[in-house]
Each structure stands twice: as structure tokens, then as C-alpha cells.
Design a protein around this nucleic acid. Sequence first.
DNA 1: GCAATTTAATCCACAGTGTGGGTTAACCGC
DNA 2: GCGGTTAACCCACACTGTGGATTAAATTGC
Lengths: 225, 225
Amino acid sequence: MNTTTRRGRPRKGDARLSREAILTAALEVVDADGAAAVSMRTVGQRLGVDAKSLYHHIDGKEALLDAVAGHVLAGIGLPDLTGQPEEDLRAIAQSFRQATRAHPQAAALVLTRQLPSIAALAPVEAVLSVLRKAGASPEEAVHLLRSLLAVVVGSLLREAGAGPAFGVTDEAGIAHRRAELEQTGLPAVVECAPYLARCDHEAEFSFAVDLAVAATMQRLVTPRR
Amino acid sequence: MNTTTRRGRPRKGDARLSREAILTAALEVVDADGAAAVSMRTVGQRLGVDAKSLYHHIDGKEALLDAVAGHVLAGIGLPDLTGQPEEDLRAIAQSFRQATRAHPQAAALVLTRQLPSIAALAPVEAVLSVLRKAGASPEEAVHLLRSLLAVVVGSLLREAGAGPAFGVTDEAGIAHRRAELEQTGLPAVVECAPYLARCDHEAEFSFAVDLAVAATMQRLVTPRR
DNA sequence: GCAATTTAATCCACAGTGTGGGTTAACCGC
DNA sequence: GCGGTTAACCCACACTGTGGATTAAATTGC
């Protein structure tokens, strides 16, 4: 037992702490117990280390969460581009979804923070490059990028359970929700209740992305007036 | 001074507390100092009341924040519908934006919470009704509703400073951000840097909504295969 | 008009949070 | 070998949400 409770600088090989190790530990906490369970103490505990020690590597809790979000986003695996703009845009969007699905509890974190700007510009580059090759001006490419990003973020936020949703996924809850909707008396809501009550996130994501990509291509063919 | 520190039930006219009063006070805190500044104590303080007293009217902090979000969303002023689907959908989206802009600090709250479901179904009814009248099936209307909602939420989240953004609004920061972008070496990013560095939220919101609405109408004219 | 009940506030207490400051011991350059 | 830097430690503080017991006014029932 060399390190039950030691003070002072650890021996050379002992490096228990590093920015990387902290990020990994924090992500483990998030995956296991949700983002709310992250505290300097819980993360420190997982590393067998005092909470304050983390401050030597990270600026504070906010910075830690930002870094975790960046870490997750960095794990995005961009697809090989085919040269078919529609297909490529869809594929990039899907890979974005995969990155958040790999850590469902961290999804809200990624979608909800202003990322340390420059981190994770790779997907941005990919989208812009596809749009430019498809004939968009630089200005238009940026507008379209932001529109696509809004669709992706909005959809994934709902999937992460952190955004306005009007449906559920588990069979048990659907009937209940549907009954609720039907007794609102709002005509269109009642009419659509069977579909409003249920929400298949994968299908909805694909639908929204397809719609956005189709609109994008349309706009590139018939330039803005 | 009858009530510097009084115990027991207050006199009749004294009703300092009520669900409504608490929500208003909480919203004032949010507007003044941001959502992070909301605590049972700060809200209580603003009402000249002990923190615990709030628990007689509200279930806890989470419920309080949910209620505040619902309160803001309830303040949405839906437009008079014209019968022109495109125009009406755009108008509803804009009124959604106005509701969040009335309380910028609360925007993230509204966009980020699962609202107590049934509250604020009025906008949903409005959108579904427009889509149905424009010829969508109930199922398709729901898909389109969710797509539009994703665009709106994603865009407003960025505007609220709580989502991935790659641009800033203040003239001072733009040049700096642009320089950062230009030295990434990513070709498309460099090419688009002037537009990527700047972000006019109103223009971006309108662009994204227009795009989504156009795609929606397109889909309704040429039904899905 | 008086007693019993309900209600809405108070205070005390607790475990848990982020973080500032001071202490201690191992490493590194001289 | 020796001073300085570094990276860990512990103590401490001002907060947070919330459970439980207390207290006094309002309301209700006879």
C-alpha cells in the first residue's frame, strides 16, 4: 500500500492525474449517473484523488464540463465522402448523431454548451466543403450550415430528453399520453394524437435531416432571388 | 413594522406568497441575474420570505424552473392566421422567437426543459391546423411539426448562447474570431471565415425558418413516395 | 362565541456543492 | 547538495436543496 493517504508530490511513475485522465473519469461519471452527478468530488473520488487536485489541470467545473463536451464531440467519426452532396450531408448528420448516442447522458452537455470554439471544427469543414462543391457561395454555405446545424441540434436535444417533446417512446406511456392529448379538445391535436403520442427518434431525425437536405439542394439549384 | 420576523400564519391581507407571485419573482431573478442565480433562497428573499415557505406552493426547484419555463412560453402571442400556409408558419415561428426574446436569460430554460407536457399546446395546435389545412395527413403533419420545432429550437438555442455557435455578434469580437478561423488551415473554413465569424441571429433565424417552411410546402405539393 | 382543525409561515439541521489558501513532499536544474 | 517548482494533501467557507418540528393566524363546526 504505497498510496493510501500520501501528501506531497507523487513519485514519478505515479502520475494519477492528467487532463486526459480527468476528462475520461468525468465522462465515466456522466455515462454512469448523468451529468448532474458530476462534481469535483465525485470525479476526484473516481481517480482516488482529492477534489482540489483537479484544479491543477482544469480551470473549474464549467471548464471541465466544456472539456467533456469537446471530448465527446471529438469522438465523431466523419464518413468518407462520396461526392453526392445529398448523401454526404446526410451521412455527416448521422455521424453527429452517433457521437451523441455513444454517450446518451452526455448528449445534452454537447448540445447545450458553447464549445471552446475552435475545437471540433472538423465537421464544420466537412459540411462547408460539401456545400461549396455543390455550388454555394461562401456566404450561402454558412447560412445553410447554420440551418442544418439547427435541425440536428434541435432533433438531438429532443432525443436526449432535454428539449420540448410531445411524445414518448415506451409502449406503456404512449396510450396514456394519447389519452391526455385527446381530452384537450384542440381539434388538430386530437386528430393527430395517435402520432403525437409516439416518437421514434431515429425516424424523426432522418425525416428532419432529409427535409433540410432536400431544401438545401433546392436552394442551390434555384439561386436566391 | 409588523412583520420583521413573524412566525405562524400571516394575517389575512398579508398574502405574500402564491404560486403566481413565486413564478413572477423567480422570473425576475432570471431576468436580472440569469437562470443560474435562481435558488430557493434568492427567490424567497425577493419575496421577503423564508426559502422553505416556497415548498408549500411548489414541489421543489426543478418544478419551479419547469413552471417558470411554462410561464414564459405561455406568454407567446399567436398571430392571426391568414390562410396562407407559408406565411402563417413563418408567423408562428416568429412569435415563438418573440416569446423567448422577451426574457433572454430564460430562453435556455424554455428550450432545454421537457415542459410539463400539456402546457402550451396552443402553438402546437396552430401549426398542426395549418399543416392539415395545407393538405398534410395527420401522420405527416406530426413529422413536419417536429422538424419545424427542431429548426426553431436549434436556432433559438444558438441565439441564447446555449448551443454550438461559430460566430459572434459584437463588432469587436468578429475580427478576432475571423483571425482564429483563418489560421486553422481548413480550406473551406478559411474561405468562409468572414461569414462564419459573424452571426446575425435574426437573419439566421429567418433564413432557417424560410428554408424549412419552403421544404415543408414542397413536400406537401409532391407527396412522399 | 369558543374549540378543533387546517394552513402558511418560521427556524434548526444536514449533507453536499465549488473553490480559496496554506502545507508538505517529491522532482528538476544548478 | 540545494533552492525552486510542482502536484498532491487537508482545513475552511459560503453556498445549495430539502426534511422535520414548531408556531401562530385563519377557518370551520357546534
